[in-house]
Simulated scan of single mutants.
Amino acid sequence: MGLFNRKPMAERQADAMQQADRIVKGKGFTGKLTKAVMGSEFTNAMQGAMNSANQAQQVQGLLASGVPTETATVVQVQDTGQTINDNPNVVLVLDLGGSQTSITTLVSRLEIPRAGDAVLIVREPQSGALLYAGLAPRG
């Protein structure tokens, strides 16, 4: 605990993410009220955005634990219309070893991938899911 028994920033952020996740899943009074007032289309869109935010945290953990990256080429970028902290949530169509696949992910507004760009991909070890890890270094 910090000064005046305040929780550390990381703990407060984790609590806020858990609360937001419960709301978009329609759990608890606030979640049910949000779903009733805003509609299931809104809560489904928010759940997709939350999944993208969670993926970004998961990628950082995988990279820190030494999971290797793969390089893929961006074929197409589609905007979903969602942003988190002004960072867009996009659908990336990727060419990965001759086959195309698409992933929905949160990207930095300062480094939005474009068609033809090389990007880094991490495979989630347990499920094999592909996760975006940023633009590949140039040069």
Rank of each mutant, 00 (worst) to 15 (best):
residue 102 S to E: 09
residue 32 K to Q: 07
residue 13 Q to Y: 08
residue 36 A to Q: 10
residue 119 V to S: 09
residue 37 V to T: 03
residue 53 A to N: 02
residue 84 I to M: 07
residue 58 Q to K: 13
residue 73 T to P: 12
residue 128 G to L: 13
residue 102 S to F: 02
residue 50 M to G: 08
residue 77 V to Y: 05
residue 77 V to T: 10
residue 107 V to P: 11
residue 11 E to A: 08
residue 93 V to I: 05
residue 76 Q to F: 00
residue 79 D to Q: 10
residue 75 V to Q: 14
residue 71 T to D: 07
residue 55 Q to G: 12
residue 121 I to L: 11
residue 69 T to W: 06
residue 83 T to A: 11
residue 40 S to K: 09
residue 103 I to K: 02
residue 30 T to L: 14
residue 97 G to I: 14
residue 134 G to D: 06
residue 42 F to R: 14
residue 83 T to Q: 03
residue 18 Q to L: 10
residue 88 P to I: 01
residue 111 E to A: 14
residue 23 I to E: 00
residue 34 T to A: 14
residue 53 A to H: 10
residue 75 V to N: 03
residue 65 S to I: 13
residue 17 M to N: 05
residue 54 N to T: 12
residue 129 A to H: 11
residue 4 F to S: 08
residue 9 M to L: 15
residue 8 P to M: 07
residue 16 A to Y: 00
residue 7 K to P: 01
residue 50 M to C: 07
residue 85 N to C: 11
residue 109 R to K: 15
residue 113 P to Y: 04
residue 105 T to V: 03
residue 19 Q to C: 05
residue 34 T to P: 03
residue 15 D to Y: 02
residue 110 L to D: 15
residue 64 A to Y: 00
residue 121 I to G: 06
residue 88 P to R: 10
residue 123 R to G: 08
residue 23 I to S: 00
residue 57 Q to W: 05
residue 2 G to R: 04
residue 82 Q to M: 14
residue 47 Q to F: 01
residue 103 I to V: 13
residue 112 I to Q: 12
residue 119 V to T: 04
residue 63 L to I: 09
residue 123 R to L: 14
residue 28 G to C: 06
residue 93 V to W: 09
residue 98 G to S: 07
residue 38 M to D: 06
residue 48 G to T: 13
residue 29 F to S: 08
residue 8 P to V: 09
residue 56 A to I: 10
residue 23 I to C: 04
residue 103 I to Q: 05
residue 64 A to S: 09
residue 4 F to M: 12
residue 71 T to N: 13
residue 69 T to S: 08
residue 37 V to S: 06
residue 108 S to K: 07
residue 31 G to M: 06
residue 32 K to H: 01
residue 32 K to Y: 04
residue 127 S to Y: 03
residue 65 S to F: 02
residue 89 N to V: 15
residue 105 T to A: 06
residue 54 N to C: 14
residue 134 G to P: 10
residue 41 E to D: 13
residue 118 A to H: 12
residue 90 V to R: 05
residue 136 A to V: 07
residue 44 N to A: 15
residue 45 A to D: 04
residue 72 A to N: 01
residue 52 S to D: 12
residue 119 V to L: 09
residue 50 M to Y: 00
residue 108 S to P: 06
residue 132 Y to F: 05
residue 88 P to Y: 00
residue 57 Q to F: 08
residue 107 V to D: 03
residue 74 V to F: 01
residue 32 K to N: 11
residue 128 G to Q: 14
residue 23 I to Y: 00
residue 49 A to G: 13
residue 114 R to S: 15
residue 115 A to I: 11
residue 118 A to D: 13
residue 31 G to I: 03
residue 102 S to V: 13
residue 6 R to T: 10
residue 89 N to A: 15
residue 121 I to M: 08
residue 29 F to P: 05
residue 19 Q to M: 15
residue 53 A to Y: 10
residue 63 L to R: 05
residue 33 L to W: 01
residue 51 N to F: 10
residue 94 L to K: 02
residue 133 A to H: 12
residue 110 L to S: 11
residue 46 M to K: 07
residue 74 V to Y: 04
residue 2 G to M: 03
residue 106 L to V: 11
residue 15 D to E: 12
